[in-house]
Design a protein around this nucleic acid. Structure first.
Length: 426
RNA sequence: GGAGAAGUGGCCGAGUUGGCUGAAGGCGCACGCCUGCUAAGCGUGUUAUGGGCGUAAAACUCAUACGAGGGUUCAAAUCCCUCCUUCUCCGCCA
């Protein structure tokens, strides 16, 4: 959520910033609501002030055994009027809140202006795109031929966009998760967390999935308003919802390996084969709570932490900056890491690292107490995949495939694979 | 799932025959005073959000907030309802 004061004072600056990302806001609508709200507040508060003045007088008279019926009648009217206005005020406030909650974050000044993913600049590439010397297969072919992946039976169990993996493939996914967690915790100072995979409405609202993106989520058909997490960013970021942290504890860095659940509404026809786009997948997620002065340094470090995994696996990738038109709802700045997939002959997203600044912190009410001032401030929150495990599995399979259809286990994964060095058809 | 108990400010803890309690008292913390160190002592202060007034900040002022949300009432921390959380006992279970 944006700062209400910013919206009140500089609505046109906000409007222009949001236009860069292709979002239109109706400033007049906001201003009208805000004026209405202020008018109602003034009126309600005057009535309440009167109530508070007269109340003790009634008590005094009653105690003295005097008649207070004139005051009682007057206050009866005041109470009735207050009730009416309160209802009206609540409606206006709810409208204004909905309005504010539906407005995306303002892009950081360093974000390249653009309309779509076509305009995302490549910042750096790592590793050489290899010439395998044979026609590379896609991961689902490899997975089927080597007995690791079975999408047909997964569809039988549940439906489209689910997967079932066996043996070496299941183990390799676990190995990758281990490698990622071990690296992020011991090398990059992250604290490992196991959060709930089901969260409530307030939590989903805190990170920005709700109210606007309900259709992307799986909701439990239960009257409790529980949702399956689409990413561990949601529970991790909300860990400190409603809390005030000591400045000295910043930055707090959490990582978690969790399943992620996405309805993928609107993505029909995209990536229908294989593991790239699933309703359920695994991801190691990193979340930082950073001091506002340090959050952009933290974003660079977090992106580097994600890149490190691909470096250890020795798989080529590139880092791009998302342009204003391609960024997610809550992000002020985002870097994507795209991994090379020989089977698809292209780079595909495997991580997205964002600084949300105080956008989520304001929604979730996460603040810190500065040592040198009384005023509490919102922290900056960052999140990044480190990495998407399923897609990483795809990258390993496709990059390490051999001409004979086998897959060589990357050096760094061998300790996690129980001595297995090559995956071959039986 | 069944039966009970509880949820007050940074913490502890008063306050349940409704009214003058944003909230006694204590602790903690901040500033000041005093004491020739330390300890003790004294004084003052110590929440958040929103409105008004200000160019802004401060100050001032008004409103709201005693787990959350509703209700009763002229008036609720105090009465009623729903929900959430915690604790105890029983049952069940990985």
């Amino acid at each position: 959520m944006l700062d209400l004061k910013l919206m009140q004072k500089n609505p046109d600056v906000v409007r222009e910033s949001l236009e860069k990302r292709g979002s239109k806001i109706d400033v007049a609508e906001f201003t009208a609501l805000d004026e209405k709200r202020k008018t109602l507040i003034a009126e309600v508060e005057n009535l309440k002030a009167e109530k508070n003045r007269v109340g003790p007088e009634i008590a005094k008279r009653k105690k003295a055994g005097e008649d207070a019926s004139d005051l009682l009648e007057k206050m009866g009217q005041v109470a009735a009027r207050t009730k009416e206005l309160d209802v009206e005020l609540n409606e206006v406030q709810a409208l204004q809140k909905d309005w504010m909650m539906s407005v995306p974050n303002i892009p950081h000044e360093s974000v390249p202006v653009g309309k779509s993913e076509e305009d995302n600049p490549v910042l750096r590439t790592w590793g050489e795109v290899p010439d395998l010397g044979f026609e590379p297969k896609e991961h689902w072919e490899l997975g089927a031929e080597l007995g690791g992946l079975d999408f047909e039976r997964a569809a039988k169990l549940t439906g489209a966009r689910f997967s079932l993996s066996f043996g070496w493939c299941a183990r390799m996914e676990r190995a990758l998760a281990q490698l990622m967690l071990d690296t992020q915790t011991s090398l990059h100072g992250y604290t490992e967390v196991i959060p709930p995979y089901i969260v409530n409405r307030a939590t989903m609202t805190g990170t920005g999935q709700l109210p606007k993106f309900e259709e992307d989520l799986f909701k439990l058909t239960d009257d409790r308003e529980f949702y399956l997490i689409p990413t561990a960013e949601v529970p991790l970021t909300n860990i400190y919802a409603g809390e005030v942290l000591d400045e000295a504890v910043l930055p707090v860095k959490f990582c978690a390996f969790t399943p992620c659940f996405r309805s993928e509404a609107g993505s029909y026809g995209k990536d229908t084969k294989g593991l790239i786009r699933q309703h359920q997948f695994h991801k190691v997620e990193m979340v930082n709570f950073a001091h506002p002065d340090k959050s952009y340094e933290a974003l660079e470090a977090m992106t580097g932490a994600a890149e490190k995994i691909l470096q250890l696996l020795e798989i080529p990738y590139r880092v791009i900056a998302l342009c204003t038109g391609d960024m997610g709802f809550g992000a002020a700045k985002t870097y994507d890491i795209e991994v090379w997939l020989p089977g698809q002959n292209q780079y595909r997203e495997i991580s997205s690292c964002s600084n949300c600044e105080d956008f989520q912190a304001r929604r979730a009410d996460i603040r810190f107490q500065p040592a040198d001032s009384k005023k509490k401030q919102y922290v900056h929150t960052l999140n990044g995949s480190g990495l998407a495990v399923g897609r990483c599995l795809v990258a390993v399979m496709e990059n390490y495939q051999q001409a004979d259809g086998s897959i060589v286990v990357p050096e760094v994964l061998k300790p996690y694979m129980g001595g297995l060095e090559v995956i071959e058809a039986k």
